[in-house]
């Protein structure tokens, strides 16, 4: 077992992503137009929305890993599920931190019960339960099956949560995702670029996390 960044391609990917990220920040700061009434706050969602997208993508991967674990019964899928759950929760908590920061100047108070943020919060709570279950669920082999089924249940619940919250909390007009489609290219292109870069970053993080779990598993299993 050797370091993740010993093999050439991972190192190349890391350098590539660092470059892309710096370009992304430079591009957002310089090229995107300054929206009249929001100024810098509007530029927050070039990062806020991609993190939410990566978070939900990650929870989708947890579901896929869960299904594959049941079909194949192969240990690897459980590691993919665990890695995706951890990174997903990292990004979702970033969204829950940056959301209120963006909302304070624009909507006046930090927390508004509006559909997207509420869905993210409920999903975050589900995954708190997921990690508690992984800690207290019993011996490791059984916990793998429970984690896989929880991953499936959690993602199956996402559309239901979103619909119920959409009708429960009134829609706030100036929400980034809602505005997205009706944006001038000046804002749309950098946004999609940022989205792509975040997804590529996520792919590397996932591979890295799976590698670290693998190394830890090797160490634990041999002992």
């Amino acid at each position: 077992m050797q370091f993740f960044f010993h093999n050439k391609s991972n190192r190349v990917w890391l350098v590539l992503i660092i470059g892309l990220m710096l370009f992304n920040i430079w591009n957002i700061v310089v090229n995107t137009p300054m929206v009249p009434d929001q100024h810098w706050a509007q530029k927050i969602f070039y990062v806020h929305v991609p993190s939410a997208w990566v978070g939900f993508l990650s929870y989708f991967i947890v579901m896929v890993a869960g299904i594959m674990y049941f079909i194949k019964g192969d240990e690897h899928w459980d590691k993919v599920g665990l890695a995706a759950a951890e990174i997903g929760t990292l990004f979702i908590s970033l969204v829950l931190i940056t959301g209120p920061i963006w909302a304070t100047p624009i909507w006046g108070q930090p927390w508004i019960w509006e559909p997207r943020l509420t869905t993210t919060l409920i999903l975050f709570l589900i995954y708190i339960g997921y990690f508690m279950m992984r800690a207290f669920g019993g011996h490791a082999e059984r916990v793998k099956r429970y984690a896989a089924s929880l991953g499936i249940i959690a993602f199956v619940d996402v559309p239901i949560i979103f619909v119920s919250v959409k009708f429960w909390a009134p829609e706030i007009q100036s929400h980034p995702q809602v505005e997205m489609t009706s944006q001038p290219p000046g804002i749309l292109i950098p946004f999609l670029l940022s989205l792509g870069i975040f997804t590529v970053l996520y792919r590397l993080m996932l591979k890295y996390r799976i590698h670290v779990i693998q190394v830890n598993y090797k160490r634990v299993a041999d002992v």
């Binding site: 409920i122 999903l123 709570l125 589900i126 708190i128 339960g129 508690m132 279950m133 207290f136 669920g137 929880l150 249940i153 959690a154 619940d157 239901i160 949560i161 619909v163 119920s164 919250v165």
Partner: peptide, 13 residues
């Protein structure tokens, strides 16, 4: 403890 913590967010809708 685990049962309510898992149940409440899932049953929120």
């Amino acid at each position: 403890v685990l049962l309510p913590i898992l149940l409440f967010p899932l049953v929120s809708p």
